[in-house]
Design a protein around this nucleic acid. Structure first.
Lengths: 148, 148
DNA sequence: CTAGACCTTCACGCCGACGGCAGAGTCAAG
DNA sequence: CTTGACTCTGCCGTCGGCGTGAAGGTCTAG
């Protein structure tokens, strides 16, 4: 498939797909005309790239992690490439830290909400956000301390 | 205290503190000389700002959420300001979505790690990252599908 | 053969959270 | 009074993941 269809099938713009290639994340075949030619593998690869980008990895880290990209010689990383593993572990730790920070921020928002409004109103506001998990804290003191 | 001490006590540079003020997140008093004068409240406020920034909120959202900032008339939001509540709920939902994305990315990294190395090596690599919680998946097929 | 959709490379623009520097004023100690 | 640390405003630089044309080649249906 060409770049337009891959874009449609992944929800990613052609510009972004070219950018990924420029960053070494994709290396599609080329037709004699110069057109890029992708296979079904790239659909999954792009989804993976988007997942990792959404998690805050930059393209260099993704390039380090997703192998098989340099066009000449699909150098399959042997059974255990230590630097690859180090990169994976590093990014995994980053993600875990980020999740902790998100949880702290969510708790902070919860305490602010508790201080700003009676819980009945909050529940009404929460209902306006579908898919929002329940289970909030009830400690107005801390948020009041932050607010003033 | 002046900006330098607040910087030391929060781990935030003076430049960033001035930026926060410019964005309406802080509004310190001023000495006749023009020097900014902060209190202990701002220490906690800055920590809150950093927490929210780390969670991906931009300064506009934080300004919307942390009230009491416009120097003239500390307009205390009444018992229930609906737009404030809407902003809080919106950002809370954003955070929850982001946590889901992070979890997906971490699972993806786990499957890649499983495919890239025997678990014994992975465990060794994981030990190099202190504070990294355990509990990983063991499904090499999916990661192999992504890798090739 | 031609129109229109699609593709190519090149190259500048954007945004947000600051970093860094310049030039000038302020403050406390000796 | 001087010195050195600190602070002020203002303004340009940075970085990453693209957006957005511009100028031109390619492909396919009619």
């Amino acid at each position: 498939m060409r770049i337009g269809e891959l874009a449609r099938r992944t929800g990613v713009t052609p510009r972004a797909l070219r950018y990924y290639e420029e960053q070494g994340l994709l290396s599609p075949e080329r037709r004699p005309s110069g057109y890029r030619e992708y296979g079904d593998r790239e659909v999954r690869a792009v989804h993976g790239i988007r997942t990792l980008l959404a998690a805050g990895l930059n393209s260099a880290a993704i390039a380090e992690i997703l192998p098989g990209l340099p066009p000449p010689g699909r150098r399959r990383t042997g059974p255990t490439c230590p630097e690859l593993l180090a990169g994976l572990a590093r990014e995994r730790a980053r993600i875990t830290r980020q999740m902790d920070e998100l949880e702290a921020a969510r708790d902070l928002l919860d305490t602010i909400m508790d201080a700003a409004a009676p819980s009945s109103v909050i529940l009404a506001a929460r209902l306006a956000v579908p898919g929002d998990p329940a289970g909030r804290k009830l400690d107005g003191a801390r948020s009041r301390a932050v607010l003033e």
